[in-house]
């Protein structure tokens, strides 16, 4: 009896992520959702610039690598060209909430029928740990060596709250992947974000609070705890928009 196996939507490529990084968990949840909905053959994924840039090697569906921050615009083009296909982007906080914020807000506001998986780990990972738009007040990074100071570096951006001021989005939820219970909730949210697209409901985004032990300078265990202690108070989990429930 098979009790555990790799989702079909994931390739056999070995992930390049650091020990304790939660990208692997989220990749798996996305792949499980694709498998469960039976949509792999008609899904097109958009990879970002950031740690998950190589996502195009990890998902078995067709993949497009976008310029930094432009994944929602690329996804818009793909979806307008192939409305029957399922289109998702997978983006980090620098990509989605900083350089690509304009594309994020505008795509959400148009209500494009796409799915966005947004990884918020409060730091730029790929470039070695610089301050992100979502870095916490006081958080020490390479470019905020004395801790993020709101006087000169502003405040963290809450994407779900920001997008919930828009009329169009169908579904916005923030989840975390730092314990079993939260991973299960994250799975449900990601599945729903894809199901919405299959049902033609419109723009769905799931923000996933994720760990970056390497650049946070923590052990993997401590990093998971830090999500509870520091991130969730700043970024409360929950549903910020669900048109279906309204």
């Amino acid at each position: 009896m098979v009790v555990f196996e790799k989702p079909h939507a994931l390739t056999d490529a070995v992930l390049h992520y650091c020990p304790g990084c939660t990208h692997g968990i989220v990749h798996r949840l996305v792949a499980e959702a694709i498998d469960e909905l039976g949509i792999e053959g008609r899904t097109i994924g958009i990879a970002p610039v950031g740690c998950s840039v190589f996502a195009y090697n990890y998902f078995n569906c067709d993949m497009i690598e976008a310029a930094h921050g432009r994944a929602p615009a690329v996804a818009t083009g793909v979806k307008r060209s192939l409305p029957e296909n399922i289109v998702f982007s997978y983006q980090g906080d620098g990509d989605l909430a900083s350089i690509g914020l304009c594309e994020t807000v505008s795509t959400a506001s148009r209500g494009e029928n796409i799915t966005i998986i947004f990884i918020n780990n409060a730091i730029y990972g790929m470039t070695g740990g610089q301050m992100a738009p979502t870095s916490l007040i006081g958080q020490v990074t390479q470019t905020s060596p004395y801790g993020r100071d709101p006087k000169t570096q502003g405040y963290p951006i809450r994407i779900c709250e920001l997008l919930s001021t828009l009329e169009a989005p169908a579904y916005l939820e923030r989840v975390a992947v730092n314990n079993v219970k939260n991973v299960r909730r994250a799975k449900k949210a990601i599945l729903k974000a894809f199901q919405n697209q299959v049902d033609g409901k419109g723009f769905s985004l799931v923000e996933v609070l994720s760990a970056c032990p390497t650049n946070w300078g923590m052990t993997p265990q401590k990093a998971l705890e830090w999500i509870d202690e520091a991130m969730i108070p700043q970024y409360p989990l929950g549903v910020y928009r669900d048109k279906e429930a309204e």
Binding site: A67, V74, G77, V78, R80, S81, L82, S106
Partner: peptide, 26 residues
Amino acid sequence: GTFLQAESEIAAINMVYGVAATGKPA
């Protein structure tokens, strides 16, 4: 067909990139 007034010139060319990736004229 699709006419879309993009949020920026940058978004417009990236929408073109998306359509081009699907093998259609953009």
